[in-house]
Simulated scan of single mutants.
Amino acid sequence: MHFFEAIHLTKKFNDKEIVKNVNLHVEKGQFIAFLGPNGAGKSTTVEMLIGLLTPTIGEISLEGIKVNSEKFRNKIGVVFQDSLLDRDLTVMENLKTRANLYQNFDSEYFNQIIIKLELEAILKQQYGVLSGGQRRRVDIARALIHQPELLFLDEPSTGLDIQTRNKIWQVLNEIRKTKQLTIILTTHYLEEVEYADYVYVLDHGEIIAENTLDNLKKEYAHDQLIIHFKGSSKFCDLIERNNQQIGQDLKLITNSNIEAINILDDLKNEISSFEMRPGSVNDIFLELTGKEIR
């Protein structure tokens, strides 16, 4: 039995399938990323996984415990795109109010989370007057208060500066190591997917690819060699499928560093400069979901 799993997860609204036969298998301590464009069904899937939406078809369980039970809810933490906290209460009032909902509240752990997320200086401030980055750190603390085993992050970094994102991930990665916290993330910041153990790519409500990030890169993200020539050059031999000539520049898909070196050596007298760009999560995203704006 898997630590957390969803089987044949499907959601229909007015006979339209928003999520179609999603199967998810997660082991304890894993970091799972959902990647997909707007409207792909990521948030709807997460809402079913945490019990906010009832699937039209499918089953969800955490260590054999069915979704919507009190025991299930006590084992998960959730950071939504929009905060659930009271804007008129102070940070401490908000956190204590949430802490009182759980029987296994540990005040020592609570204090550690406050320190790790650097919230001491704002505990007496009203939540509503905080900056976006400050509010998000409080939201993370609220989700971690009861020491969940599984944490859902639904686009938690949207609109945040890089310093805040780095702090949040520093804390979460530390807790993953010390507590074997399992994380399921949806995000538009593709660089965050680089840390994932396993990636599901969703589009139009379906999982269109899934694998480790390294394997996805091997299949969908190719290295590119971009050559800038001194003047007009003919490179017909290199103009093949997946290669592009733009003015005096040539963009080539390469299979290895050795191949790139050989090409550069052959053309060394005609080249003014070049750059080598490894395949990335962006390439996976565009290859699988297309380049059109949605």
Rank of each mutant, 00 (worst) to 15 (best):
Asn243Asp: 00
Asn243Trp: 07
Asn243Leu: 01
Asn243Pro: 05
Asn243Phe: 07
Gln245Lys: 06
Gln245Val: 07
Gln245Ser: 07
Ile246Val: 08
Ile246Gln: 04
Ile246Ala: 01
Gly247Cys: 01
Gly247Glu: 02
Gln248Ser: 03
Gln248Ala: 00
Asp249Cys: 01
Asp249Asn: 09
Leu250Phe: 05
Leu252Asn: 09
Ile253Lys: 12
Thr254Gln: 06
Asn255Ile: 03
Asn255Lys: 11
Asn255Phe: 10
Ser256Tyr: 14
Ser256Thr: 12
Ile258Lys: 15
Ile258Leu: 15
Glu259Gln: 15
Ile261Arg: 05
Ile261Gln: 07
Ile261Asn: 07
Ile261Cys: 03
Asn262Thr: 10
Asn262Tyr: 13
Asn262His: 13
Asn262Asp: 13
Asn262Gln: 15
Ile263Leu: 15
Ile263Met: 15
Asp265His: 08
Asp265Cys: 03
Asp265Glu: 12
Asp266Thr: 14
Leu267His: 12
Lys268Cys: 03
Lys268Leu: 01
Lys268Trp: 00
Asn269Ser: 13
Asn269Trp: 06
Glu270Lys: 10
Ile271Gln: 06
Ile271Ala: 06
Ser272Lys: 08
Ser273Leu: 06
Phe274Tyr: 06
Glu275Lys: 05
Glu275Met: 06
Glu275Ile: 11
Glu275Phe: 12
Met276Gly: 05
Met276Arg: 10
Arg277Gln: 10
Gly279Met: 00
Gly279Gln: 04
Gly279Ala: 08
Gly279Lys: 04
Ser280Leu: 08
Ser280Asp: 10
Asn282Trp: 04
Asn282His: 07
Asp283His: 02
Ile284Tyr: 15
Ile284Arg: 12
Ile284Glu: 11
Phe285Arg: 03
Phe285Pro: 09
Leu286Gly: 05
Glu287Leu: 07
Glu287Phe: 07
Glu287Met: 07
